[in-house]
Write a protein that binds this DNA or RNA. Structure first.
Length: 277
DNA sequence: TTGTGTTTTATTGCCTCC
DNA sequence: GGAGGCAATAAAACACAA
């Protein structure tokens, strides 16, 4: 590193070394920063504002190891950060003067503070996504259970119909109205048709047909910001499902129970009893 | 007291903007 | 090309259990 040359900083009154970094970052540090080994005197961190601007302290006593800012300095910096987390040059200079710090120290503090804020923000968003995911997973599980229950009902009704067919009582399309027993049989037959459609997958939902929670996988992000798109992919699809504007809260699943042609029924046309609308 | 993990301050290299 | 931002990292300071 090129240690550069000494200069006098009028804002702090310190004689400082101009430190050259990578070509465009210019680091200013107290002279003794470069003479760390020359003194055995220790001062762990700043203890008062007066000490900060005490020339003698800088010139004669400081071992110039890394020092913590005082609580008062941190408080003021925090307040300033709350007001605006970016630091324009003028404010940097003012703050530095007020705190008895080098402008560079103020800039570094803001830099690190932004980094800490970003980390916290990511943690908060992660927690939010996690709880959202867990809630959806729980919804999904209950829907799967419900689906299993309905399927087994269909199976038992199918058996019932088959028993009646063996007995030779099934007549479809009769006029006048069927006796109630036979009407039951027709309803069950319709139900079987719907079940066939479901199990063939022609009009059913992947949500219901698949084993895992795959409803959660699609392109749109839960976050408005693209930066977070890859953070928690599996949750994403939920938002896009809702975005089509055709659904209410439970809409991801309800259509799975409706035969495709019945989903587009005309107004007033009766739906089967098995159809949720 | 000491070992270890965490936090804070500071540096470096790269990138973008003007 | 200079200035400033950010990510990654180093290292000092600090906290705390054993």
């Amino acid at each position: 590193m090129d240690f550069g040359r000494m200069f006098f900083d009028p804002s702090s009154g310190h004689e400082n070394m101009l430190l050259m970094g990578n070509g465009h970052h210019v680091f200013r540090g107290p002279r003794s920063l470069l003479n760390m080994e020359e003194t055995s005197k220790k001062r762990p961190f700043f203890s008062s504002h007066d000490e900060l601007i005490d020339d003698e302290y800088y010139d004669e006593q400081l071992p110039e190891k890394k020092r913590r800012l005082t609580p008062e300095q941190v408080h003021l910096l925090e307040k300033s950060f709350e007001a605006e987390n970016k630091l324009e040059p003028e404010r940097k200079t003012q703050l530095a003067k007020k705190l008895g710090l080098q402008p560079r120290q103020v800039a570094v503090w803001f830099q690190n503070r932004r980094a800490r804020w970003k980390t916290k923000q990511l943690e908060r968003e992660f927690d939010l996504l996690k709880s959202s995911y867990e809630s959806l997973l729980s919804d999904y599980d209950s829907i799967v259970k419900e689906n299993e229950k309905l399927k087994s009902e269909v199976v038992s009704l199918t058996e019932k119909v088959q028993d009646k067919e063996v007995a030779g009582v099934v007549v479809v399309g009769q006029n006048p109205p069927l006796p109630s027993d036979e009407a039951d049989v027709v309803a069950v037959q319709c139900c079987i048709k719907a079940e066939d459609r479901l199990s063939s997958g022609s009009g059913g939902s992947a949500v219901v047909d698949e084993d895992g929670p795959q409803l959660l996988d699609s392109g749109d992000s839960y976050f408005p910001n693209e930066d977070y798109r890859n953070c928690m992919g599996p949750v994403d699809g939920v938002q896009s499902e809702e975005d089509d504007g055709s659904d209410d809260g439970r809409s991801y699943f309800s259509n799975a129970f409706i035969a495709p042609e019945l989903q587009h029924h005309e107004e007033g046309e009766p739906l089967g009893w098995w159809v949720w609308s």
